[in-house]
Amino acid sequence: MIRYIGLALTFLVSIALQSTVFDSLQIAGAKPDLVLLLVVFFAFTTGPVKGAFFGLLLGLLEDFIIGYNIGLNALVLLCVGFIAGWFATKIYEENLVMALLVTLVATFAGELMTVFAGFFAGLNWQLGENLRLIIAVTLYNTCLVPFTYPWLHRSLTKGILRYRPKHEK
């Protein structure tokens, strides 16, 4: 239970930071996607299926908070969770370099997918124009990994956010 409350709080803080602190810390007109980062780190410890489910859930919540285009972030974060989780099953050593790499790939794929999904759903989004924004967000997200991954990963594997089997409760 404590794991899920912790995850929910982390999610809410991420959303709040994105619209406040990082709104004034924009680099090249882009702010990081902290929720995506959280999904990547979570999927990293659980594998593709749970990662995808977690992504779907957080994406849906984020969509409801934003209030329109419901399903966009849900679809994207589902895929991001799956990709990051799938990578994690292929990697034997979990370290910072791997986290950087997976975040880079997953963020780029996720943001690219956002534009495609938006395009297919009939929004007025152009890929060419947004490609540089996607790159900016990807680099920003990757730069944040050294500051977030170590303690979030420790918490997810050993700390408050760790998975507790039933008999431990």
Binding site: Y68, N69, G71, A74, L75, A117, G118, A121, L123
Partner: peptide, 17 residues
């Protein structure tokens, strides 16, 4: 079905809806 559902939902809940 997840993809189809998402796309329909994105479309139906656009800005101003």
């Amino acid at each position: 079905f997840i993809i189809l559902l998402s796309l329909v939902s994105i479309r139906l809940t656009g800005i101003g809806n």
